[in-house]
């Protein structure tokens, strides 16, 4: 797994108060017991870790171009943003 994925999993695991080994790519935020406030906090931590800006409004999570459907989807989306925002 990439170091990007490791970092993201570490952030999500810390937010969910789990061991990183317990967080897998197919899990959803709901599976992990992360509520809307926890989600906003995790997004902030990911932005800080990679110095990127993630488009997300808590009022319309469905409308975001950023895929939050699972841990794996978040990793893929962050990888995409890093490529895009570095360009």
């Amino acid at each position: 797994m990439s170091s990007i994925a490791d970092t993201i999993i570490a952030i999500i695991a810390e937010n969910a108060m789990l061991d990183p080994a317990e967080v897998t790519a197919d899990m959803t935020f709901q599976d992990l017991g992360i509520d809307s406030l926890g989600l906003v906090e995790a997004i902030f931590a990911i932005e800080e870790a990679f110095n990127i800006s993630i488009p997300f409004n808590a009022n319309e999570p469905g409308k975001s171009d950023f895929d939050l459907s699972s841990v794996g989807a978040v990793i893929a989306a962050v990888e995409g943003l890093i490529r895009q925002q570095a360009a």
């Binding site: 906003v40 997004i43 902030f44 997300f56 409004n57 808590a58 409308k63």
Partner: peptide, 20 residues
Amino acid sequence: EGLRVMARDACRPFSRDRSG
């Protein structure tokens, strides 16, 4: 801004397309 509950265009209470 940090809380991500702010609208960028207008305040539309009760409207289905409200964004904060």
